[in-house]
């Protein structure tokens, strides 16, 4: 299950999308997410879908990968669809006992499903084509104005990239600890909620201790390599806009304009 989450996973490939400045991809993803809430009709969703499909094609990431990310949110999707279907008042299409499915409900459910699928796939394009480090770099640069109101932007970005590096390590460690405790007769599967939570202690204590130890080691290692915060720090891969990035911004603006026009003219 955890392996199915594609967010935060990088898929190496040589594509135009991979080569774009991460800031463009970050802003682009934001614009796309905004657009799927601006579009409010199925023709509009068709435009958004077309845009999404061409981005997926350009990214050279196999669509199979994209859909793997959807599998993880399948439950959430089903719940949203069902709630919308049965809880929206309007013309009743059919009744099953006290459950009434309305026309408006079906439309609403359809829209929500489309939006969710677009939302997840849209953000997956970004995470699949951008290394976590590029992504945090982009955030650091885009959020830099917040420095003036004393938001520690560099520190937050550093924390995020370290988290991204250690999540797979800690997941593997969780698996090892679980096995070690199962070998001692631990039971992580049966019992009621309270018992199960209690049964997690032999897993969580070693995991936390290890995480703290790692944090401690890492802090030392960073200090040893002259890390002293963001001040006077240079970058190995500084972000620089190129022609293709400006082009991409133009396309994004055009796309956003289309979305607004669709909304204004109620297409």
């Amino acid at each position: 299950m955890l392996k199915d989450i594609t967010i935060g996973q990088y898929y190496p490939a040589d594509s135009i999308i991979h080569k774009l400045d991460p800031r463009v991809k970050f802003v682009g993803t934001m614009i796309f997410i905004v657009s799927i809430f601006i579009f409010n009709s199925f023709p509009g969703y068709f435009v958004a879908g077309l845009f999404l499909a061409s981005m997926i094609a350009l990214s050279k990431v196999p669509p199979k990968f994209m859909f793997k990310g959807l599998r993880a949110v399948f439950m959430l999707l089903m719940i949203t669809v069902i709630f919308n279907m049965v809880l929206t008042p309007g013309d009743i299409v059919f009744k099953l006992g006290f459950i009434k499915v309305t026309r408006e409900g079906l439309i609403m459910a359809g829209k929500m499903a489309v939006r969710l699928v677009f939302l997840i796939s849209g953000s997956s394009i970004m995470t699949l084509t951008t290394t976590p480090n590029q992504l945090t770099d982009a955030m650091e640069r885009l959020l830099r104005p917040l420095n003036r109101i004393h938001v520690p932007v560099h520190e937050i970005a550093m924390m995020m990239s370290i988290a991204l590096r250690f999540i797979p390590i800690l997941m593997e460690e969780t698996d090892k600890i679980m096995k070690a405790q199962i070998a001692r007769g631990a039971d992580f599967e049966s019992g009621n909620i309270i018992q199960r939570t209690k049964n997690m202690i032999p897993l969580l204590v070693p995991l936390f201790i290890s995480a703290f130890r790692r944090a401690n080691d890492l802090a030392l290692a960073m200090e040893a390599r002259c890390y002293h915060g963001g001040e006077n720090r240079t970058q190995m891969k500084p972000l620089k806009y190129e022609r293709k990035d400006y082009m991409a911004y133009l396309i994004l603006i055009a796309y956003l304009a289309a979305a607004i026009l669709f909304r204004v003219f109620k297409l």
Binding site: Y10, T131, P132, N133, S161, I162, L164, R165, I169, R213, R214, D217, L218, L220, A221, M222, A224
Partner: peptide
């Protein structure tokens, strides 16, 4: 340092 995992910062 000793632990190879705990001193590599980047991905």
């Amino acid at each position: 340092f000793q632990n190879p995992d705990n001193q590599i910062i980047a991905t």
